[in-house]
Write a protein that binds this DNA or RNA. Structure first.
Length: 219
DNA sequence: AAGCTAGTCAACCGCTGTGTC
DNA sequence: GGACACAGCGGTTGACTAGCT
């Protein structure tokens, strides 16, 4: 499996944004001949681009079946569900969203959904409530900043921060447990769609949680 | 009005998978 | 089985823009 010769090897090949004229040439050529081998497309179409660049331009922008514009809430939900099952397999996710490209979905995920999930305290990789130290630290730092008005000596401040972090960790853990309980409930109610698919393809042992167990976790 | 910052998205880069010899 | 060529994929970059100070 050797590496493909990079387009960068050819210094004469044009890079950067496509012009309307280049687009037209590519569209005309593909409409007439189909793309066949992408390597020969630029030569045949009279473009000073590499085949890779032509393929990308066609699949992400020029293809006639591309749906442009904002993602609907339905599409957003679908992307989140598919991502929870497939992970960063953008092309696989795109296959379930007619008219959307993998690049578009990837951008949408990285710029909108990812941040949205983080703000909700959900890890965008695992789709589970965040428990990472950074997240808890951020929360405790926020709290610290909010209380900065009350000046105290550094040692007291350190103890206070530690106590705040512990308190926040407890609160976060409690919140996480509640979310898990709600998720379990929701999964039982949800009988169709990809959430159900995820449950079916990757069944997890359900841990019954009750007040006593939560109390135990929280100490 | 000018400068700065954050968000968006098109395009590139480098790697992997697959088919062929 | 190994080398090669190519297509496709996912991560990253950088140009552009909108909103804010």
């Amino acid at each position: 499996m050797g590496r493909s010769p990079s387009c960068a090897d050819d210094a004469n090949v044009k890079k950067g944004p496509w012009t309307a004229e280049e687009d037209q040439k590519l569209v005309d050529y593909i409409n007439k001949n189909g793309h066949g081998s992408w390597r020969i497309v630029p030569k045949q179409a009279g473009l000073n681009r590499c085949g890779k660049s032509c393929r990308l331009r066609w699949t992400n922008y020029l293809r006639p079946d591309i749906k442009r514009g904002k993602f609907s809430e339905e599409e957003e939900r679908l992307i989140i569900n598919l991502h929870s099952v497939l992970g960063n397999k953008w092309s696989k996710i795109a296959a379930h969203l007619p008219g959307r490209t993998d690049n578009e979905i990837k951008n949408f995920w990285n710029t909108r959904i990812r941040r949205k999930l983080l703000n909700l305290g959900i890890d965008p990789h695992t789709h589970k409530p965040r428990t990472d130290l950074d997240h808890l630290l951020n929360l405790s730092q926020l709290l610290c900043v909010a209380q900065l008005g009350n000046t105290m000596n550094p040692l007291d401040a350190a103890f206070k921060l530690q106590a705040d972090a512990a308190q926040l960790a407890q609160a976060q853990l409690f919140q996480n447990l509640m979310q898990i309980m709600n998720t379990n409930k929701a999964a039982n109610v949800e009988s169709d769609g990809f959430l159900a698919l995820q449950e079916n393809t990757n069944p997890k042992p359900q841990i019954p949680l009750n007040k006593e167990k939560i109390q135990y976790f929280l100490g």
